[in-house]
Simulated scan of single mutants.
Amino acid sequence: MKENLSVRRAADILMQKDNITLLCHRRPDGDTAGSAFALYYALKDLGKEVRVLCADPLPKQYDYLYGDYSPSRVLDWPVEYVVAVDVATAGMLGGLEEKYGSMVDLCIDHHPSNSDYAALTCLWGEAGACAEPVAAIIKAIGLPLSGKIAECIYTAMATDTGGFRFASTTANCLRLAAEIMESGVDTAAINTRIFESETKAKILAEAKMMSSLQFYANDRIAVMPVTLAMRAETGVTGEELEDVAGIPRKIEGVLLGITIKEHEGECHISLRSKELVNADEIAEIFGGGGHRQAAGITIKGTVEEATRLLVAEAIKHLPKE
């Protein structure tokens, strides 16, 4: 990495800029959305002109974060300073990569696999969520974690740590969560919205997905296909399926869960592992990346082809029995 920018320096730079574009990663989750909008509200409080860009629509379950603001995909905004949040590689910008991939001035991230594509990077590789360095920067700017900013930070941390259950959860995450609770944010309502509210279509889709589970390597690898047919039959939307990747890993004895979402001509794969298997190492072989226990890949081809490739490679990364 060219230089790992300090929180203080990142805050100083943002305070000096007046027109800031915030970029989320494609297929946005709660961390990229929450981190971007926490910065959005903080910078707006300072009188900055700010917009949030995302190549794909934000999941409806997070609409309490942004209200009637619609993350723009319009590219004619005057660009002064570009900040990517929770975006480990330029490729993760999706449809925004062509214009912005080489224009990112500052990347705020927590992925150890960050490709150092931005001019400057503030990387907390041990953080449980990108919201951790974002919260530190907001505090360094001189703003409290309260109101909408706090809701965004909490949402980002809760989603990326699986409700503070995953091994990636840090003590700092828990301290920030406590601080946010003490500020008056209704964290129970956020938890209900994120983790305890699903549509009938999603429940029906999950039933089909779980009934299609395939097991390999003495049941230590579980593959869960999410086909276009399943989506068509149940009416579930793509954004509703963003959080299903953890299902295979829950199964007793499974060390690696592989969720394969079928798209036209390609598959989007989510790897979720237990501590003994490094999901990031497997993902990097196929041009993807992420964290030790959560990583993503895009593979051209069918679900069956992706399954064969992934299982063959994943077996090499399992511990000896």
Rank of each mutant, 00 (worst) to 15 (best):
K261F: 02
A222I: 05
M230D: 03
E305I: 00
D219A: 09
A222W: 06
E281M: 07
N278E: 02
R272S: 03
T298R: 05
A229P: 10
G289K: 06
A306R: 01
Y216L: 07
G265I: 04
V303A: 12
G296M: 05
K261N: 14
K274P: 03
R231M: 14
P225W: 15
A245E: 03
M230C: 05
D243E: 07
T237M: 14
I247K: 11
G235M: 04
D243M: 13
L271R: 10
G253N: 06
K316T: 12
E262N: 06
L255S: 11
E242P: 08
G301N: 10
E305H: 01
V236M: 04
V244A: 11
Y216I: 10
H268I: 05
S270K: 11
S270M: 05
E252T: 12
E233V: 00
E240R: 01
E252F: 13
G265W: 03
V244R: 12
V277G: 11
G301Y: 15
T234Q: 02
L271G: 02
A217R: 06
G235V: 10
G238N: 14
G235R: 02
I285K: 10
D243C: 09
D243W: 04
A312Q: 15
I258M: 05
K300G: 05
T234M: 02
K250C: 07
V254S: 10
I221V: 00
I285W: 07
G257Q: 01
I297V: 08
V311G: 02
P225N: 13
D219M: 03
V244L: 13
R292C: 10
I247T: 12
G288Q: 14
H263S: 08
E275F: 09
D219F: 14
H317D: 07
L228D: 02
E264K: 11
G301W: 13
E239T: 13
A306E: 12
I285N: 03
L318S: 00
T302R: 02
H268W: 13
G287Q: 07
T302I: 00
G253I: 01
G257L: 10
T227A: 09
V226R: 08
I282S: 14
I251M: 09
D219R: 12
H268R: 14
L309Y: 05
M224G: 01
G246D: 13
